[in-house]
Design a protein around this nucleic acid. Sequence first.
DNA 1: AAATTGCCTTGATATATATCAAAAGATATT
DNA 2: AATATCTTTTGATATATATCAAGGCAATTT
Lengths: 243, 243
Amino acid sequence: MNLELTKDTIKVACSNCNLRELCMPIGLDQADMQKLDEVVATRRQVKQGELLFRSGEEFKSLFAIRTGFFKTSVATPEGLEQVMGFQMAGEIIGLDGIVTDQYTCNAVALEDADVCVMPFSNVEELSREFPVLQRHVHKVMSREIVRENSMMMMIGNMRSEERLAVFLLNLVQRLHARGFSQSEIILRMSREDIASYLGMKLETVSRAFTKLSDEGVIEVKQRYVGILDLQALKKIVNPRACD
Amino acid sequence: MNLELTKDTIKVACSNCNLRELCMPIGLDQADMQKLDEVVATRRQVKQGELLFRSGEEFKSLFAIRTGFFKTSVATPEGLEQVMGFQMAGEIIGLDGIVTDQYTCNAVALEDADVCVMPFSNVEELSREFPVLQRHVHKVMSREIVRENSMMMMIGNMRSEERLAVFLLNLVQRLHARGFSQSEIILRMSREDIASYLGMKLETVSRAFTKLSDEGVIEVKQRYVGILDLQALKKIVNPRACD
DNA sequence: AAATTGCCTTGATATATATCAAAAGATATT
DNA sequence: AATATCTTTTGATATATATCAAGGCAATTT
C-alpha cells in the first residue's frame, strides 16, 4: 500500500479506533479486523472552513469522519448553494463520487476535522475478500438512499416547524449515539445552512426556532439548542403517535 | 441455485437480453457474461396495479425491470402517499431494502411488467468474483444517491413550473435512451402521483401543465405529452444556459 | 344510450412561506 | 474601547401554492 506520511497524514488502525462500531462491520475477530485496517490509507486533517473535496474533483476515496463535522452541498444553476447533508463522526462521505468518478458535492468542514482516507480501490479489494465488509459497504450506501428518501418526504410534505423538529430530533439522536447529550445541541451550521437543507429560507428557520422556543419546546441561545420537551417535539412531527 | 419455475417465473439469460447495456456492466466477454447470468434467479411478471414488493416486507432480492413501469412510494405518518420515484426498463429497484433487510418502499407496477429477480446473495457472491460487476453495483447505488440529491435540490429550490419541466425532460431523456421518441410521452402515472413526486398538489401540477401548454412549449392531451419546444423547456429549468 | 366512476381542469379564496427592510446581537478588527 | 462585519431576529408586505368547490371529459358499466 502506498503510505505517504506527512505532518497532515497520520496512520491509525481501525482495529484500535473507538469509532469502529460506527464505521466498521460488527462481529469481526481480531485477525480479520487487522486485515481490514488496510482500507484506510492515511488520515487527513481538515481545518474549519476548508474543503475535503469539491464538486468535479476526481473521485479516488471515501472518507470516514473521525472527528469534526461536515456539510455537503452543491451549487444550483442560479449560483445558490443547496445543502445535501451534515455528517459527523463515524459517518462516510464521498459516496456520490462513485457513479461518475467525480465528486458531485462539495464537502466543507464546519469544525476542525480528522478523516480516514479510504481509497475506493482498497474498499473494493477488501470487500471481495471479506463478505462482511462487502455487506457493510452495501448497507452504508443503502442507508444513504433511505435517508434521502425521507428527506424528500419531509421537504415535500411537512411545514416549516415540522421540518425543524425533524432536523433537531435527528441531530440529537445521532449525537446521543456518539455519547453526547440527548437534550442539548451546539449547532455547527448557520441558519442559512439549515434553511437550505430543509428547503426553506433563513428567516423562516429563524421564525420556526422562535416559535418552538415560545412554545417552551426548546431553548435557543445562538447556536445552542436545549430540548426542553422531547415528547412535544416528537408530537409536532407526528401528532398521532405519542411515543 | 434454487430455481423454482411456475407460470409466473421464466428464466432468461442476461447474456442474450437486449437490455444488458442498461443493466449489466459493459465490456464483458462472452464467457464472463454467461457466468453473470447466474445473478438472475427467475423472472416475475407483475400486472398493472400489483405490488412487486411492499414496505416492511423482508428484503431478499433486487429487481431489474425488463418491461413495464413502476412507481415506488412510502406512506407518510398522516397516511398520505409520498412517491419516491418512477422506474422503467433497465433500472434496478429494491436498493432501499439492503440496510434494514426490509424494503422501505412499496413498488407498484403502473403497467404490466416483467422483472428479473436477483437474489441479493447472488449479487454479492458474484460481485466478489467479478470486480466489474462489483463496480457496477456500486455505481448503480451511487447513481441513486446522486439522483435523490438532485431531487432534493429541485424540490427545495424550484417553482412548480420548473419542477414539471425537469420532470418531463428527465422522462423523455430516459425514454429516448430506450429507443422511444424524444418528443412524445405517454404518462404512466396520474397527476396526483406526479404531484407527490414533485412535492406539490395535483391541482398545481394541472395548472403547470396548462401553463406550459398555453406557452406553446408542450402539448397535453390527457396522459399524452408532446414536447413542442425542447429549448424552451430547458430554458425554463435553467434560463442562463441556452444549450 | 344513459349512468356511474375516476381523473383532470378551472375558479375563488386562504394561507404558509418568501421577500424586502431594518434593527439587534454577536464576533472580529483596528 | 470603538468600529466594522457578519449573523440572527423581527416586522410588514407580497406571492406562490394549497385548499375548497364545482364542472368537464373519458372510460366503463348497466
